[in-house]
C-alpha cells in the first residue's frame, strides 16, 4: 500500500513530500486548507489528534512531526545518501541542521500568525513582529555563514535530508526577510529548487493559498 500524506500546500508538509520524491517513494496527497474547516473533520482528528499537518500514513503508522518523519524515512528506506550514519563525522552537523530548520520553522509560524491569521490589527503585537523578524534574520545569517565557504549544501559532503528540512523554510522566510544580503543563501535556494524531485513535489502539492503577498513588510509602529 502506498503512503498517504495529509498536507497543506506551503506548510511543513512540503518537507515530507519532497523527501518522498527524492526517495522515489509513491505517495497520495490529501490536501487541506488552514481556514476552510477541513482540518476540523472528524476523520482527520482520528489520524492527527491535534489536527496538525503533515500527517503521513506509511508502513501502518501515522507520523506527525516533520523532523521525525524525515529521519524515519531516511532510516527505513535504503539506497540513498541522505543521512550520515551514527559514527560519521558529519552526523552531529546533520542532526543540528535538521533541528535548526525547525527553529526557523517556528519563527515563521509565529510571523504567519501575526501577519496572516490574527484577523484584526489590534490583536497583533508590533513588538512581537519586530522581534520575530529580527530573530529570523539572525537565524538565516547562520545559514549564510555556513554556506560562505563555498559548499553547495548544508553538509560539505553533499545533498542530504537536512537540505530537505531547510528548503521549504527558506521559501517562507523570504516573505519576511529580504535575501539581498544573503548571496550564498540565494544561490543555495536556487540549487534546491532546481532539483527534479523539488519541482515534482511542488506539482503534487498544488498551489499554496494562505500567503497572498510575496513580501510582508513590518507594519509602522
Amino acid at each position: 500500500m502506498s503512503a498517504t500524506l495529509h498536507s497543506i500546500a506551503g506548510s511543513r508538509s512540503f518537507r515530507v513530500l519532497w523527501l518522498l520524491h527524492e526517495l522515489g517513494e509513491p505517495v497520495e496527497v490529501v490536501p487541506y486548507q488552514i481556514m476552510d474547516g477541513s482540518l476540523q473533520q472528524e476523520g482527520f482528528k482520528a489520524i492527527s489528534p491535534a489536527r496538525r499537518v503533515p500527517a503521513l500514513e506509511i508502513d501502518g503508522r501515522v507520523l506527525i512531526e516533520s523532523g521525525a518523519t524525515v529521519q524515519y524515512l531516511c532510516e527505513t528506506r535504503k539506497g540513498h545518501d541522505l543521512m550520515p550514519p551514527v559514527h560519521a563525522d558529519e552526523r552531529a552537523d546533520w542532526l543540528q541542521w535538521l533541528h535548526y530548520a525547525e527553529t526557523l520553522g517556528g519563527g515563521i509560524q509565529n510571523l504567519n500568525m501575526q501577519h496572516l491569521f490574527l484577523p484584526k490589527p489590534e490583536m497583533r503585537s508590533l513588538t512581537v513582529m519586530g522581534i520575530e523578524t529580527k530573530r529570523l534574520a539572525i537565524a538565516l545569517k547562520g545559514v549564510e555563514k555556513a554556506l560562505s565557504d563555498g559548499r553547495d549544501y548544508l553538509l560539505p559532503t553533499g545533498f542530504s535530508a537536512a537540505d530537505v528540512m531547510m528548503g521549504f523554510t527558506l521559501t517562507s522566510a523570504r516573505r519576511y526577510v529580504r535575501f539581498e544580503g544573503f548571496p550564498h543563501l540565494t544561490a543555495y535556494q536556487a540549487r534546491l529548487e532546481a532539483r527534479p524531485a523539488y519541482s515534482a513535489a511542488q506539482v503534487a502539492e498544488g498551489p499554496q493559498q494562505f500567503y497572498t503577498q510575496d513580501f510582508y513588510e513590518l507594519p509602522e509602529g
Binding site: S66, Q109, S125, T127, V128
Partner: peptide
C-alpha cells in the same frame, strides 16, 4: 521532535508574559 513543538509554545508564552515587560508590547490574543 514533539518536544520542540511544546517548546515553541512555551517560548512564545515566556516571551509574551515575561520578556515583553510592558502591556503595550504584548498581544493578548497571541
Amino acid at each position: 521532535h514533539y518536544a520542540e513543538t511544546i517548546g515553541q509554545h512555551l517560548a512564545n508564552l515566556t516571551q509574551g508574559h515575561i520578556v515583553l515587560y510592558e502591556d503595550w508590547m504584548r498581544s493578548p490574543t497571541q
